[in-house]
């Protein structure tokens, strides 16, 4: 009886996990298989390897200036990630390390911005960017992401594990505050930076709605916009769409696999 219960529990657990795994992985498999099939086969629901891969790549290449679109995406993602990490880590470190009467109030105000949905910010942001003359420039995509409350929060939480005695030792060794930050904090917290890098890079790479609003000409567009515009064309070529989707997914996959170890370390908060 006991064995039966255990067996059943295991069966349902694995069945549930199996279904969840399938739901997560199947779209990827379909995307890869779809890239080898013609648009008609894809619409028919064919799940299998086809022979149209080269045609699909050619069609995608003909429709899109691939190097330019990639360059746009990479440029925006890298600049945005680098600046966000600098701003957020300085803020997180400052909030955790320096005592002030107003510290918690300012911090709460920043966290409060997490509660405001982006949809509510779109119009004022658009007006602001218009006044700065930044519409249809990449800065319009980059600037609003810099003061990310979530990343500041993440850095402050991680800084709690940064030993205060290291800062004391550095002060006794004659370092100024900015030197402590650059020469001690940054290298000690590198796994936190790695995890934050992945999170922010992915978010920036996958960013769709805001670039769609502020990037208007074709030569400014990012890969997510291109995938979407191909999929929503009057006669979408789903084979080419699948190829573009694969290309759009690759960089984030590469970044994740390269930095996987640091990512896990950063998320579990280990300092070594």
């Amino acid at each position: 009886m006991d064995r039966l219960t255990r067996g059943l529990t295991a069966f349902f657990t694995y069945a549930f996990l199996g279904i969840m795994a399938f739901l997560s992985v199947f779209p990827f498999i379909w995307m890869v298989l779809g890239a080898t099939n013609t648009s008609i086969d894809i619409i028919k629901g064919k799940v299998g390897i086809g022979t149209a891969l080269l045609d699909n790549i050619r069609a995608f290449n003909a429709a899109v200036d691939v190097p330019l679109v990639f360059w746009n995406s990479i440029k925006i993602a890298l600049i945005s990630t680098a600046l966000t990490l600098i701003v957020a880590s300085l803020a997180g470190y400052g909030f955790e390390v320096f005592r002030s009467k107003y510290r918690e109030r300012v911090y709460s105000a920043i966290l409060l911005t997490l509660m405001v949905p982006f949809a509510a910010l779109m119009i004022p942001l658009f007006v602001m960017m218009g006044k700065f003359g930044l519409i249809n420039t990449h800065w319009a995509v980059i600037l609003p992401t810099l003061g990310s409350a979530f990343v500041i929060f993440y850095f402050r939480q991680s800084t709690k594990a940064f030993p205060s005695e290291l800062r004391d030792a550095a002060r006794v060794d004659g370092l100024k505050e900015w030197q402590i930050f650059l020469l001690i904090y940054v290298p000690v917290m590198r796994s936190t930076y790695a995890a934050a890098f992945i999170i922010v890079f992915m978010a920036s790479w996958n960013n769709y709605l805001w670039p769609l609003i502020v990037l208007q000409s074709n030569e400014m567009k990012t890969i997510t916009l291109v995938v979407s515009s191909m999929a929503s064309a009057y006669y979408p070529d789903f084979g080419a769409v699948m190829v573009s989707a694969i290309l759009a997914t690759l960089p984030t996959l590469i970044v994740f696999f390269v930095m996987q170890r640091q990512f896990v370390q950063g998320m579990t908060g280990s300092i070594k």
Binding site: P163, E165, L166, D168, A169, A170, R171, V172, D173, G174, L175, I184, P187, V188, R190, I271, K272
Partner: peptide
């Protein structure tokens, strides 16, 4: 400044720079 007092300090947690 601490670095100019002619002192050196040894901490409980050693406070060695891990990197």
């Amino acid at each position: 400044d601490p670095s100019k007092r002619g002192i050196a300090m040894v901490f409980q947690s050693y406070a060695l720079y891990p990197h």
